[in-house]
Design a protein around this nucleic acid. Sequence first.
DNA 1: ATCACTGGGTCG
DNA 2: CGACCCAGTGAT
Length: 357
Amino acid sequence: MQFTFHPNVYNTNPRSKGLLDLLEQVWIKDRKAGVGVNFIISGFSNYNGGVRFYEIFKEHIDKGGKCIVILGGSTSQRLSSIQVVEQLLEIGCEVHLINRKRLLHAKCYGFISDVDQGVVISSGNFTGPGMSQNIEASLLLRGKHVDELNFSWEELRKSIFSQSWDIYSPTLAKRLDPAWSLLYDESRFKVPFENEQEVTMLLTLVHSDTARIQANRKTKESRGSQYFWVSKESFDFFPALTIKNKRGIKPTYSTIIRMNYVDLGVIDNKCRVTFEAGNNLDFRLGTGKLRYSKLAKPGDLAAITRISEYEYELRVFTKASDTYNKLNHYAINLIGNEGKKYGYIPNDEFFKALAKN
DNA sequence: ATCACTGGGTCG
DNA sequence: CGACCCAGTGAT
């Protein structure tokens, strides 16, 4: 039994923080792929909400398991996206959309198998923000606690489908089916950019982030790609990571953004952000333009400002600067083992802090 | 010349 | 073993 109030506000178990952790517990930890049925019920959903789990669900389904997904759908509100539903169907999930004026607003996640069951009841939707930076409360029940409740996924499922609701079940084969009209398009420039998304990520840099920035041409140190490694919680800071890897075997999910390197006066239209789902869960921001520039060293603070859905600005503040001291205390999340910290500051406050210098 | 990938390392 | 850290190789 666990309760969390995220992001990192209050957790009954200090080792598990937030909805994402609870979902990892019901869908990954102590679960055998292929055994049982996974459930997702969520009013809202988008691609990045599931990016941590697509590979897990695929393996589960490929080995004989099931995933039943019930989402909100609407022609007038942006409840669930085409992209998340396409992805869930591609990996073999059963997806149902509830089209209702008084909308499906519940968020329940979990699984049932012959030996165990788990339930997560949360305020967090199956979306990037719901999983990371929104303030959300979540309760996890597992095993005997679910039995005590007398909860049954099967009863809940049956009851939902016996209501006189408009339930649509999109399939990949019938793309003209009205079910698809209940979904919104998350692709480039189709989603409006909300005020609360205008934030700047502050990220302290470590050796791996700056080794190639500090390197000289044609040296051993300069080889390989230049990235900043960001937190696994970062997927609500970036657009839908719908680009799959073309070459390799290890699944990755990427997106291309425009990065304005303010310190360099250079704009990169093909800045790549990648979640390495099949390789250590690395989350990388490509920052190749900084190579050889000597502009950042370990301990410095990178400020990545989201200007619009796909446009970002990057500034680096050295540890000695006044701005560093002003911004540093916003980087409240301690991650990794090298003293990396990150956090967010609203853009208007960020620019105010810049203007004072 | 650059970067999409690879596959380890490390610490708790 | 999860999640950042690191050092490349080989494709483009």
